[in-house]
Each structure stands twice: as C-alpha cells, then as structure tokens.
C-alpha cells in the first residue's frame, strides 16, 4: 500500500500502528510504502508494485484508467477537504489571493489534488496566468512545512490543508500563530484510497470493508482521530466532479 507523506505529517509511529491495524483486520501482512515525493506513489502504482495507494492527485487522467476508486476519507462528515491561504503573521494587509502577484508562494506538492489545483483554478478564473502569477513557487513536500516556510518568512504566502493547520494550531500554537489565515478555499474531493487494476475483487472488498469499518470499532476510531479523519466512505466519482472540472480548465 502506498501512502503520501503529506497526510500523516511524518507521524511514523501512527503509520506503524495503522499498518498493524490493517494487518490484524485483513489477517495478512501489509506493507506500507511511503515517499515524500508523492508522484512516486503514482509511478509505483503504474509499475504495478503496489496493490493499493492513498493518492492525492485523483482523478489524474492517466491514473484514472489504471485504478479503481475504493474509499474516500471523511472530514467533518464530508468527503471534501478545504485549504487555507496563509501569510506570515506580520503581514496584516493581504486580504485575497489576487493581491499576491509576484510573491514567493509555497505549496505542498505539484501533484496535489487539492490546494495546488484550487489556487491555480482560482487564478485562472480571475483571468490570471497561473504559471506566471507568482514570482517563484516552492514545494515543501508536506503541509506542515508549508506553514513553517510561511512562518519563517521564506515564502510570502502558502496554501495549506485546513485540517493540518487546525491540528497544528492545537499542537504547536507558537508556529501556527506566526501565520495568518487569509482565505479558505472551496471544498474539493479528499484524496482517496485506490486499488490497482489487477487487485482481485475479493481483496478489493476486504480492504474496502476494513477501511469503512474503521469508524465502527474503538481502535480504528482512535487511529482515525489521530489522523484527523472521521472515517471512510465508499468511493464515489461524484465527489471529484469539481476536481475534474478544474483539471480540465487548466488543461491537465
């Protein structure tokens, strides 16, 4: 199973425990492959070395043909995530994305389904060229480090997953307080768990039921809480209609 780093913020203990949970439920060993460079997960999926993957770039056109949508995480009961536009705390002026022309902007990852796509879409809608609007774009590899880059002043602004920022505001209020949330994005489809095309129907069903059942037992619920999710729902393409539309507009 492939795992994007951004969702777990490098909480390797938590990942280990989740792996154990899955192994226990499936009665078979589970191997988790995770990489800071998200796209590698996708690459490995192509190479058919992975059975399942939690991907952030669904519904990538190429990917969509290779995989089956299995489960979508729920945040506040919805299969949608939102992201925050943040600036350093000393910046009291910026009120919208469009004021950040020529800025040094921090994203988590270029293949990220949500924030990167959403910001670029918003720029496009405002009549800007998403590829030239910012003077420089840096990718930090994780949401938490986007916050760090903005807090330290390395980036003038950044787009970060709202769940990550909210949980950081609780665990590291000092770091979160050095940033200011300017705007909240529209909801977009949460990164889903997908299965490779060659995975058998039985295995697909087993895995899907384990994920969907997590919210129903105490151990699973505790893990979900630590990940910052409410549960999983079965994959539904409708969730990604907006994402797909945005991708289409951006010619991706």
């Amino acid at each position: 199973m492939g795992l994007p780093d951004s969702l777990f913020n490098m909480q390797y203990m938590l990942i280990g425990e989740w792996r154990q949970y899955l192994s226990d439920k499936l009665n078979r060993p589970v191997e988790i492959v995770f990489n800071k460079r998200f796209s590698n997960t996708t690459v490995q999926l192509y190479l058919e070395t992975l059975d399942f993957a939690w991907v952030t770039d669904y519904p990538d056109v190429h990917l969509k043909n290779e995989v089956r949508l299995m489960a979508i995480p729920l945040s506040k009961g919805q299969p949608y995530f939102t992201s925050y536009l943040i600036v350093p705390a000393f910046n009291h002026n910026t009120a919208s994305l469009l004021e950040l022309k020529g800025a040094l902007f921090a994203f988590t990852d270029p293949s990220q389904n949500g924030s990167y796509l959403d910001v670029r879409h918003e720029l496009l809608m405002a009549g800007q060229d998403p590829n030239r609007f910012f003077s420089k774009i840096i990718f930090t590899g994780s949401h938490r480090e986007v916050i760090k880059a903005v807090a330290l002043g390395l980036a003038h602004a950044g787009e970060v997953d709202s769940n990550v920022w909210d949980s950081l505001a609780k665990s590291r209020p000092d770091l979160a307080a050095r940033t200011r949330v300017v705007a909240k994005s529209l909801p977009y489809g949460a990164p889903p768990v997908v299965a490779n095309h060659f995975v058998s129907k039985e295995d697909f069903k087993d895995m899907q039921s384990v994920l969907l059942g997590m919210a129903k037992d105490a151990r699973g619920l505790e893990l979900l809480k630590r990940i910052g999710l409410d549960g999983f729902m079965a994959g539904d393409e409708k969730v990604y209609e907006r994402n797909a539309k945005m991708r289409q507009l951006l010619n991706e």
Partner: peptide
C-alpha cells in the same frame, strides 16, 4: 531548484 530542501539544509 528545490528551494525548500536547500533552506532545510542550511537551517
């Protein structure tokens, strides 16, 4: 051109 990585290294 991985600015963040470079920044992390010097930090």
């Amino acid at each position: 051109d991985d600015t963040w990585q470079a920044f992390e290294i010097i930090s």
